[in-house]
């Protein structure tokens, strides 16, 4: 046996330890599942943590109805493979008002994601919810605890976080309060990719380059995943061009910028990531709403 663990082994063992603590101490845990690569890794770690049992909690997808179709395909399959219940929540108010990313701008994220998430957590009564966020993603994430406490109204108070020492997590909370737990806190984007390769984890094919129908909108390049719906909302049919593109992160298709690429294998994707010079979240429109402090503000309001 080689003495000492590699960095991936250490990260894996830590994440598993975190998940088991939650299951041992929380009353009703659930796992936020966004279908992206981080969620895929988190789900894989959950399978490992509780094997041979299935992970003893459901998956929750807070849906916006605007995700890529390939994401919906993998969603059902992944839950099935893991032997877990899949809960899907769509904010009924957003559904009724027909909230979309073009006409409603920031309200799209707020109504579908932030409010939808709060509704779902209340509806299913989770007192602990796993999320796949990483500290390397964004400045305010870097200071968030692994066990992040939320008030009864789901707000985050960055000035009043519990100190987190060693691997001892204080999971006690008052009635109505809940915990967001981030088992991937110490992983970086490169770690995630290396782990996906090492463990052969299935991810949405959109991460790999392929010829896809694309259109340009307000300076960004997007994929026309559902052209009829786009036309309906925009009032015209955008000019579609087929390009070889892929995605570095996955969200709502009209909000997730595509990058032109020919990287069609995992190692080519990692190669491109390492050679590229723009950071991961840049393709997402959501962080830019309020300049510098926008993610921190969203988290205070209850966003993951």
């Amino acid at each position: 046996m080689t003495p000492g663990l590699t960095h991936l082994q250490r990260l894996e063992a830590e994440s598993i330890h975190i998940m088991r603590e939650v299951v041992a101490e929380a009353e009703k845990p659930g796992m936020l599942y966004s279908i992206g690569k981080d969620s895929a890794v988190m789900l894989h770690l959950a399978k490992k943590a509780f094997f041979p049992s299935s992970p003893p909690f459901p998956l929750l997808h807070v849906d916006t109805t605007w995700k890529f179709r390939e994401m919906y395909d993998l969603r059902a399959k992944s839950a099935d493979d893991a032997g877990m219940e899949l809960l899907v929540h769509q904010n009924p108010e957003a559904l009724k008002a027909g909230i979309n990313p073009f006409d409603h701008g920031p309200a799209h994220t707020d109504m579908w994601k932030t409010q939808g998430l709060k509704q779902a957590l209340d509806k299913f009564g989770f007192d602990a919810a796993f999320g796949g966020a990483r500290r390397d993603e964004e400045k305010s994430r870097a200071k968030e605890r692994i066990f992040s406490f939320r008030s009864a109204s789901h707000g985050w108070d960055p000035k009043n976080q519990r100190p987190e020492l060693w691997n001892l997590y204080n999971t006690r909370k008052n009635k109505g309060e809940s915990i967001r737990v981030f088992p991937l806190s110490n992983w970086t984007e490169l770690d995630i990719w290396q782990y996906i390769m090492a463990e052969n984890i299935e991810i949405v094919p959109l991460y790999f380059a392929a010829p896809r129908p694309t259109y340009e909108y307000e300076g960004g390049l997007f994929m026309a995943d559902d052209i009829e719906r786009l036309e309906q909302v925009l009032g015209h049919r955008p000019r579609i061009t087929e390009r070889s593109v892929r995605f570095r992160t996955l969200g709502c298709f009209p909000l997730t910028g595509a990058v032109e690429s020919t990287a069609s294998t995992l190692s080519e994707v990692v190669q491109e990531m390492l050679l590229t010079t723009t950071s991961e979240r840049q393709g997402r429109v959501i962080d830019k709403d309020a300049g510098d402090a926008s993610m921190e503000q969203k988290k205070r309001e209850g966003y993951f």
């Binding site: 663990l5 960095h7 490169l190 090492a198 080519e268 990692v270 190669q271």
Partner: peptide, 14 residues
């Protein structure tokens, strides 16, 4: 040689 690079990085310590 991305594969060689990844091999090298797979077994890093922390």
């Amino acid at each position: 040689d991305i594969d060689a690079y990844l091999d090298q990085h797979q077994n890093k310590s922390m």
